[in-house]
């Protein structure tokens, strides 16, 4: 796993639930067939009401109509990101669309676990509400080893909360890779 993540910000509000991340009608596609998997990218974050998509202005879909990938790789959001259902399709669709990390004030437990154990995107927490200052399209840089995030566009920097217990699982790339390394899968 690289220790630097750099890319454009996509800013959202609070309580972004899994129906907004990937609406239920799209849960039927295969998660292994490469052609169908692309559809998860196409519909990532398509359930967010358009006025709240890509703050502060809104009306900026995460994935442009007709495309399968997003131009944004770091999602910035308020508290309780990923609340709602247990669908792992949610962090998966963000990964397929090209997201690398999320920086939110807090997460719903199942979504957080899914991000980490599936190795899809890194779920960072911040004490400050970054979605109040970062604007969609800003260029951001996350330094994983130093737990910092820089806003290169606005020339500001913030501290990320340490990943703590899950750091090793994140750096291994998911729970299976971690379990193999730690010999937990012999049972």
């Amino acid at each position: 796993m690289d220790s630097i993540i750099q890319g454009k910000a996509y800013v959202l509000g609070k309580n972004i639930d899994t129906d907004q991340i990937i609406p239920a009608e799209h849960l039927v596609y295969s998660l292994s067939d490469p052609e169908e998997v692309k559809l998860y990218g196409k519909y990532a974050l398509s359930g967010v009401p358009i006025a709240e998509a890509g703050l502060p202005e809104g009306n900026r879909p995460f994935v442009e109509n007709g495309k399968f990938e997003s131009e944004y790789s770091i999602i910035i959001a308020g508290p309780n990101f990923g609340c709602g259902s247990s669908r792992e399709h949610a962090p998966f669709s963000l990964q397929v669309a090209g997201a690398k990390a999320i920086v939110a004030e807090s997460y719903a437990r199942i979504f957080y676990r899914n991000c980490v154990d599936g190795g899809f995107v890194i779920p960072y927490e911040t004490a400050e509400a970054l979605n109040k200052t970062v604007m969609t399209g800003d260029e951001l840089k996350i330094d994983i080893d130093n737990n910092t995030i820089e806003n290169l566009t606005q020339e500001t920097a913030y501290t990320l909360k340490p990943l703590g217990d899950v750091y090793n699982i994140v750096m291994s790339g998911g729970i299976f890779a971690y379990a193999k390394k730690e010999n937990l899968m012999s049972s």
Binding site: R113, N114, G118, D165
Partner: peptide, 20 residues
Amino acid sequence: TGIGNTDAAFILGTGKIWEK
């Protein structure tokens, strides 16, 4: 409690899971 597919697949194979 609820979990995602990766955690469930891990349980399918091992009967175990971590929880806080």
